[in-house]
Simulated assay, not measured.
Amino acid sequence: MTLCEAEKTFVLHGVEENFRIDGREREDYRPMELETDIVSHAFGSARLRLANTDVLVAVKIEVDTPFPERPFEGKLEFFVDCSANATPDFEGRGGEDVAIEISNTLSAAYHSPKVFDLRKLCILKGRKCWKIFVDILLLECGGNLFDAVSLAVKAALWNTQVPLIRQIDIDGNNVELKVSELSDCQRLDVKTAPVMVTVCKIGEHCIVDPNVAEEQCSVGSIVVSVSENKFSTVLQTGTGSLHSSTLLDCLKLGYKVAQRLDDALWSTLSKIQPTEDVGFLK
């Protein structure tokens, strides 16, 4: 979708009046819908719909060997796939750059042990560990991908069940593990997992949760990743630039909104009860 100058002016005036084209104020999010445990063959899963943005996340786990330089840690990898039906921009190889940018940003956001402790995934020092694959599918793109993906990833990791190690048998270089049944597992600790907030500057003001039209009107934007009371990463997106004072305003707004968003997510997750045979992929 390409906007003409008159449409961009309309969006700009709405932001200035704190009354955006869909009726929201500058710090408001669009309605969200969250489902968990909807992919039957995954260890954890979540689907989040933020207005017209639709994201599906599935988590898989396997036993692997730790990196030699980090013998006490497990592994966490992110893979992003952009459906060609999500937006015409993803047709052909158009979604590859977006997928790489999102996966790299997630890797950077989860890099610190204070955000997500990979040491809890270690099974046997230098020999065995859990490797977590987080597969992300962008089903529909209606703006603000980073925020939607981060919330869906955190919900899917919260939903993930890690089997317990019942017995370890070592015979020379061979290590055999006996794990528990899927009914006897433990959840991942994702309390400090980061939440991303995209802050765009339109005119003289900053907004959150931009839709597709507002993204085209933005003169510059950043994605801040917040874990509890600290930033885990900051990414500038788009081609525009921001003045230092504007950047500081964006960071303050992103920090405040991320905390509010994280509280809302935890409140929602705490109300989710285990169910059977539900979800659109079962």
Rank of each mutant, 00 (worst) to 15 (best):
T2L: 14
L3M: 02
C4L: 13
E5I: 12
E7I: 05
T9N: 15
F10S: 11
V11C: 04
G14K: 06
G14N: 01
V15A: 11
R20L: 05
I21D: 04
I21L: 14
D22H: 00
R24L: 03
R24P: 08
Y29I: 09
R30I: 05
E33W: 10
E33C: 12
T36N: 00
I38S: 00
H41M: 14
F43G: 12
T53A: 03
V57A: 11
K60H: 10
I61C: 13
D64W: 03
T65G: 09
F67V: 10
G74S: 08
K75E: 10
L76M: 05
F78W: 06
D81I: 11
C82W: 01
A84Y: 02
N85G: 12
E91V: 12
E91K: 15
G92N: 09
E96S: 12
V98L: 13
A99Y: 08
T105E: 07
A108C: 08
A109M: 07
Y110A: 09
S112W: 04
K114V: 12
D117V: 07
L118R: 15
R119V: 03
R119T: 13
K120A: 02
L121I: 10
L124P: 03
K125E: 14
C129K: 04
W130V: 05
K131N: 09
D135R: 06
L137T: 12
L138D: 06
L139A: 05
G142F: 02
N144F: 10
L145M: 08
F146T: 04
V149F: 01
S150T: 06
S150D: 05
L151N: 03
L151H: 03
K154H: 09
L157P: 03
W158R: 08
W158T: 10
N159H: 11
P163I: 01
L164W: 00
I165A: 01
R166I: 12
Q167H: 15
I170L: 11
D171F: 11
D171L: 12
N173D: 15
N174L: 13
N174P: 01
V175M: 06
E176T: 14
E176L: 13
K178L: 15
V179L: 14
V179F: 02
L182V: 11
S183L: 10
D184F: 08
C185K: 09
D189W: 07
K191V: 13
T192S: 15
A193V: 07
V195S: 02
V195Q: 00
M196G: 13
V197C: 05
V199F: 03
V199A: 02
G203E: 02
G203D: 02
E204M: 09
C206V: 13
I207K: 09
V208R: 05
V208Q: 05
V212S: 13
A213G: 05
A213L: 04
E214N: 05
C217N: 04
S218L: 07
S218N: 01
S221M: 11
S221T: 00
V226L: 06
S227K: 09
N229Y: 02
N229S: 14
F231Y: 07
S232W: 00
S241V: 10
L242E: 06
S244L: 15
S244F: 12
S245N: 13
S245F: 11
T246G: 04
L247I: 02
D249H: 09
C250R: 00
C250L: 08
Y255P: 05
Y255N: 10
Q259G: 15
R260V: 01
D262A: 11
D263W: 08
A264E: 12
L269Y: 06
K271P: 06
K271H: 10
K271M: 10
T275L: 14
L281C: 00
K282D: 10
